[in-house]
């Protein structure tokens, strides 16, 4: 097995992705190239600058605490790959 870049391995694990060897090699090369490109951000004059999370900095509007949608359980369960007895089904977690 080829040696893995620890940063890539960590990010892939956090992102719940499991690239195969060929894909991992491509991702490693691409991630390095992207990080090289974004490295230029480090030289920006931002010592006194606050992060801008949202372009218009709108205040979050509040709305009345009222139920506006009824029971949507059946509607949403119908979209799931696997359901049973009104629940989502996944592989057993505990034996």
């Amino acid at each position: 097995m080829p040696q893995q870049d620890p940063a890539l391995r960590h990010a892939a694990a956090l992102a719940r992705l499991q690239p195969d060897d060929a894909e991992r090699a491509r991702l490693e090369r691409d991630l390095k190239a992207i990080l090289r490109m974004v490295e230029r951000l480090q030289a920006a004059p931002v010592a006194e600058v606050q992060p801008l999370y949202h372009p218009l900095e709108l205040p979050a509007p509040l709305r009345a605490d009222q139920v506006t949608e009824g029971d949507q359980r059946a509607l949403h369960l119908a979209l799931a790959p696997s359901t049973g007895a009104g629940y989502y089904l996944v592989p057993r977690v505990l034996d």
């Binding site: 894909e23 992207i34 931002v46 600058v49 992060p51």
Partner: peptide
Amino acid sequence: KRRVITGTHVLSAGYQEAYYLQALKVRR
């Protein structure tokens, strides 16, 4: 997958300030 992994990396502990917060400051 390339973007998800890049995004996860720049948000992960030890990198968030250097990449994500820095990018948000440049955004301003």
